[in-house]
Write a protein that binds this DNA or RNA. Sequence first.
DNA 1: TAAAAGATCCCCT
DNA 2: GGGGATCTTTTAT
Length: 205
Amino acid sequence: MKRRLKRADYQIPPTELAVYLLGKVFVGANGAFGRIIETEAYGGGNDPASHGNRGPTPRNQVMFGEAGHLYVYFTYGMHYCTNVVAGEKGECAAVLIRALEPLGGMEKMKNARLKTFGKGAIKETNLCSGPAKLAQALGIGIKQNGIDLTKPTPKQKVHIYDDGFIPEKPGKFYAASPRIGISSGQNLLWRHFFPENPYLSSTSS
DNA sequence: TAAAAGATCCCCT
DNA sequence: GGGGATCTTTTAT
């Protein structure tokens, strides 16, 4: 059974949404999809590492909007990162999708990755094992910034659904750690992931 | 107007 | 383990 996540599912604090999204299935703009195995929470209060920490700007305005929308930003001159807006309207909160376990559309993922990088980029464990990798593999770019995940259409396929996946160890099925790649807020254990999963982002341990 | 940093990735040693 | 690629956004002058 498949259930597409609805608005209310997203209207919770980012730290809760980061855990809730683990195990759910993320469908990309090109139809490829994978299971969410690694997330990070941002904002939702005083978070020095959040893009919205110093108030709204043209880039981060989506983070202040309605939950259930996609926040995509460009970074390091060549990469996109994919976030899901959380919390209440007016609040700045989002969850970064850091890694997926590929489930379908593997050929599409490989083709997308092959375009800009070499052969080494299309190993199955290299397809979605990082925020910029999965964005590229699933066709997520700046055009997807601000789209509504609760209302996919034939043109906008991006959404998240629950396929009834049950973690192996209910109650203690995920681990928490400091977030990766940030220069402040390292004290917060806001990264959540399935431990010992071979598809985790490579910068994780 | 300028400068710095960046929620990253890949390849080489 | 280390450095280069590459360029937008933000903040400071």
